[in-house]
Design a protein around this nucleic acid. Structure first.
Lengths: 226, 226
DNA sequence: CGAGGAATTACACAACCGTATAACAACAGG
DNA sequence: CCTGTTGTTATACGGTTGTGTAATTCCTCG
């Protein structure tokens, strides 16, 4: 006669979050295929059956995890705007800098993002999440650009500029995450600020707000500070 | 008594290529997890056991498929330079345009690229292929930039400019592939040329060489023209 | 303090995965 | 035409996957 494992009842919210975080960790470490129901449950400290109690299936959990990461990534990026000064140039600089430094720019996040991308293509619900997050990010960028003191600020021009600047950020984010050893510290931020400044016709001073601050140790795949 | 399936003997080269193409198609359609030995063999018109006759295992086939796609992608992009005129501006314009139009910019290619990215992180051999392809592409771009008639063409400046322009291309390539419905035809090319022109301080005429040419029908995931 | 209900575990099951191996058949050389 | 080689198929096996279901235990409420 084997003894049944003891357990504690917990709130639906904390259980769901624990399962989502476990899934994200596993995707970051070994790709989507490493995030099986058994490994997720094991890392979350529960048994596999519990997943189907809080999610209708593995696909449901996967969608929730993807939405969680995308929202937190945008939130991390937007957070810097709340403590940024009123000067439009400084706000844009802070936003771009945040996009190209941890915790937003992290190899693990690229791994998660890429791992989910295949689902974005095939699953309509996940594509909606992706589209909403992407357009939301670009909208913030477009507003920052529209607030700049520039001679001509056409509406269509602001859209094009936002797409271009977003591409610069995405491209640098991707390359810096995929090949972190090929770039010096702060190099990508300087390049990004210079390129975006050239596109917009303004000068973005690349004064680092925090001089070479390393990422917090022991952070999870989303850089959440516990 | 069931009848045994008839078959034809074929060369090692054609069999290997058929298996690689089948694997790429499946990764493009349903991600890495869709490319099982059975589905690959089925699409290639053979039985699963044959895979292990031409490859030491599934991992071996996966590596070969990744290398095949990366090499063909670079080749497609470089091909336009052979028929481009001598004018440095026109050559850069053609190169950027090719990077942001089919067959290089294709949703299926982004899917394949993302599907393999997790292996790039964990497998040293695949990371080497990735790094070599990326740096090779950027090197071509850097040479095109260095050839431009510009006032100051510092070596370090050329490197920074190449990284920035590469980021623009990568970002637009990614966004255009992930959300193809959100951009008008030719919009990404125009934005890319304008942004890169602004970064480099030159004017890139966005004269479309082929007016609204649709991608070739029935092309495989690599756009190979049979 | 006792009972109801729900959170959690435990177990079972069919389907699928990659791999190994033996049997067969298509083609080449005599 | 026949025989040997080997490309190819067929089949089997252990392991893993996602899911369905019953049993159990924790907690709340009366």
């Amino acid at each position: 006669m084997t003894e049944r494992r003891p357990y504690r009842r917990e709130s639906e919210e904390s259980r769901r979050e624990a399962l989502i975080l476990a899934a994200l960790e596993l995707v970051a470490e070994g790709g989507l295929e490493a995030a099986t129901v058994r490994s997720i449950a094991d890392r979350a400290g529960v048994t596999p059956g519990l997943i189907r109690h809080y999610f209708s299936g593995k696909e449901d959990l996967t969608r929730a995890a993807y939405r969680h990461m995308m929202e937190q990534m945008t939130a991390d990026n937007v957070a810097v705007l709340e403590t940024a000064p009123d000067c439009p140039l400084a706000r844009l600089t802070a936003f771009v800098t945040a996009s190209l430094t941890p915790p937003v720019m992290q190899p693990l996040r690229l791994a998660i993002w890429a791992g989910f991308l295949q689902l974005v293509r095939s699953d309509a619900a996940m594509r909606a999440v992706h589209e909403q997050t992407y357009l939301g990010y670009r909208d913030i960028l477009e507003n920052l650009i529209a607030a700049l003191p520039r001679p001509a600020s056409d509406a269509a021009r602001c859209r094009s500029d936002a797409i271009a600047c977003n591409a610069v950020i995405d491209g640098l984010w991707m390359e810096g995450s995929a090949l972190p050893d090929n770039f010096a510290s702060g190099e990508l931020v300087a390049i990004g600020l210079h390129a975006i400044g050239a596109i917009l016709g303004v000068t973005l001073a690349g004064a680092p707000p925090a001089p070479a601050a390393p990422p917090p140790t022991g952070a999870g795949p989303n850089g959440e500070s516990a």
